[in-house]
């Protein structure tokens, strides 16, 4: 992991309401039809992801949008804008491709902004996942042992050290509680959630 940006959303909003708010923003985003509306919302979600301290791989998302658009252009529909040899750029295909590509990356932005590893899933599976994250942290602590040259030998040593199959009680000790980074939901947090949710719903209703 490179330099970590602070999660500015996490100061006010706890993991569960945050996830719920993200989910509530998804339907109007998916239902919105216009290119401008989609692009605006995707930009808003990108802003949220940046506020969440996520490093977005802009190049990757750009390539994704461009390639989706390119493949849509290959099946022309609508007004012919430009003709470059056999390659025809049509307004309908261009618009559909951009909408599809932007919809997909916007979804990822929103997801990245609203999902925290601290999010706890309910039930027995949630507990098991807690154990998995506990071990994940434990293996990560020892990752320096890993060497590219002797990958398998070093991996075996690392695993032996972190989870010895011959010990009395497997994975002894810790309860599997994730480190408590959790903030309390503040009044301001609820207000911010509500404001953020209103933006996509408002845009969707107005455009319709």
């Amino acid at each position: 992991m490179r330099k970590k940006q602070p999660d500015r959303i996490g100061y006010y909003i706890a993991a569960l309401p945050r996830f719920a708010a993200g989910m509530l923003m998804l339907p109007p985003y998916l239902l919105a039809e216009g290119l401008a509306c989609k692009a605006l919302l995707a930009a808003f979600f990108a802003l949220l992801a940046v506020l969440a301290g996520k490093r977005l791989r802009w190049g990757y998302f750009l390539i994704l949008v461009l390639s989706v658009t390119f493949f849509h252009l290959l099946s022309p529909w609508g007004r012919v804008l430009v003709e470059i040899g056999p390659f025809i750029i049509t307004s309908g295909a261009l618009e559909n491709g951009l909408i599809r590509g932007i919809t997909l990356v916007g979804m990822v932005f929103l997801s990245v902004a609203s999902v925290r590893p601290e999010l706890e899933l309910p039930g027995r599976f949630g507990g098991l996942l807690g154990r998995t994250f506990y071990y994940f942290d434990s293996i990560l602590e020892g990752k320096r042992r890993l060497s590219g040259k002797n990958f398998f030998v070093s991996l075996d040593e690392l695993l032996m050290e972190r989870f010895n199959p011959d010990q009395e009680k497997l994975g002894a000790g810790e309860s599997g509680e994730k480190p408590c980074l959790e903030t309390d939901q503040t009044f301001r947090g609820w207000f911010l959630c509500a404001a953020a949710i209103l933006i996509p719903w408002g845009l969707w209703i107005l455009k319709l």
């Binding site: 099946s75 022309p76 529909w77 609508g78 007004r79 012919v80 025809i88 049509t90 309908g92």
Partner: peptide, 14 residues
């Protein structure tokens, strides 16, 4: 003076 394209495989209207 404009050209439009509609593949017959896809329903739609212009």
């Amino acid at each position: 003076g404009e050209v439009y394209i509609m593949p017959l495989s896809r329903d739609g209207s212009l």
